[in-house]
Design a protein around this nucleic acid. Structure first.
Lengths: 238, 238
DNA sequence: CCCACGAATTTGGTATACCATTTTTCGTTG
DNA sequence: CAACGAAAAATGGTATACCAAATTCGTGGG
């Protein structure tokens, strides 16, 4: 038994393809062709698609090909709002619970970013950025929190990546990261909160600017999704 | 094509069985026997199990039967901490974005609870309680928020239910609900925040009391789950 | 009597085949 | 030539069969 996994490998691969743009937003995900391309059967491919759907990277449609999610600005902004709440909590808890070693690692990641700044390509840089933010969430020592946080990072990967590509914002990002690290080292929850908020505000600005006038193509959200149907998630239909 | 569904029906059924206690915490979920019991094939049963796993109600183990999640107090407390952040944000946004009709519906649910107070059985009462909290989250008009919020409600269903069963806490719960509704009607974010915080604090107290000395049977968390493996979720291994 | 080793069974993961619905295309007709 | 309709192709959902790993239980040796 392949100890827990072909489907997650496929999911990883798909995720990369989506985030790298090989599968454009809005593109259909045909499980048959993708399964053949990757030389696996439909079953694990199907599971992989579900995994990505839960993460919000692909959108399932009843009796239709799933498509690569293509969130409008409003949807992105809503996710960022939740991400803000999660990161603020992470920061607060990290001040209380993080070990010195964990904070040191966060600083190390920050310096790694500053170091690689204009040596490596944006995507590689962005990977470290991701690790930086994940490390903060993990430093909260709250598993439910960092797992959820990671889910939102994945969901916002593309938007964050597009934001990070805008070179002129890099100085600001670097400064903000530095400020966050310093506040963590001081274990000053209020400063951490302020700095994280500023960082996310800047992210939202970048995204807003990027998406300003372009894709007004998609309908806001044709899906009705009745409250009753949605409520099943919580077992409300018990 | 049964318009997107058998697996979610099964998931609903399983969720009910878990929450109603038919499948006790720690019990193994054998996809073969459950599939036969429900007279479906293993494929959709498998998908259903994954759905519940993502919700945190069942726990997948590599090369082992999944088991019904049996979180220890620490894990519950961590989830409640995240739930607090989500509900605080919900309350704040609801103050700004909720329609009067939505707030009226929240009050109606509150009064329905007060009404049914000691007429109906705890489980039915609890369903309404669930709807009450979901309605607040939905009033935020932030889809990502209320979906995530609903996920945590599901994850905490059992703990919340056990808390709600303690009759002597019901008066307090009712008072707190009333205070939350009043604060929402006044659209006073600060009051909403205070009241929600009190409500969740009480919840945690109840759970703590309930689980006080009993199940110290399970190992804290034998799963190492390397950071690298976990980081895949966020595409960090890109 | 206990421990160790191995075979059988259990169980989850994967592949393949089948079915139902939807979409598309092509032919016919007004 | 356009529009409607039926047939065919495509696609996702479900069922079944097969495989490999892991646990378990029985047996033999110490």
């Amino acid at each position: 038994m392949a100890r827990e996994a072909l489907s997650v490998d496929i999911a990883d691969q798909l995720r990369r393809d989506i985030l790298r743009g090989k599968l454009a937003p809005g593109a259909p995900i045909k499980e048959r062709v993708l399964a053949e391309e990757m030389d696996v059967s439909r079953t694990p491919m199907r599971e992989a698609i579900r995994i990505l759907a839960k993460e919000g990277l692909v959108q399932l449609r009843p009796a239709r090909s799933p498509i690569v999610a293509n969130p409008c600005f409003r949807e992105i902004a809503e996710s960022v709002e939740v991400l803000r709440a999660l990161e603020l909590l992470s920061g607060e808890l990290a001040c209380r619970h993080a070990s010195d070693a964990e904070i040191a690692r966060i600083r190390a990641l920050h310096e790694q970013i500053a170091d690689a700044y204009d040596r490596v390509d944006t995507l590689d840089l962005f990977e470290i950025d991701m690790q930086f933010h994940i490390a903060i969430a993990r430093a909260s020592h709250n598993r439910a929190l960092w797992e959820t946080h990671m889910g939102f990072l994945a969901r916002l990967w593309r938007a964050r990546y597009l934001s990070a590509k805008q070179r002129r914002s890099r100085d600001r990002v670097l400064r903000q990261h530095g400020a966050i690290v310093a506040a963590l080292e001081a274990r000053d929850p209020h400063r951490v909160k302020v700095e994280i908020e500023a960082h996310l505000e800047a992210l939202l600005d970048n995204i807003r600017r990027y998406l300003a006038g372009e894709t007004a193509e998609e309908p806001p959200a044709p899906e009705p999704e009745s409250e009753a149907a949605a409520a099943r998630h919580a077992g409300a239909a018990l």
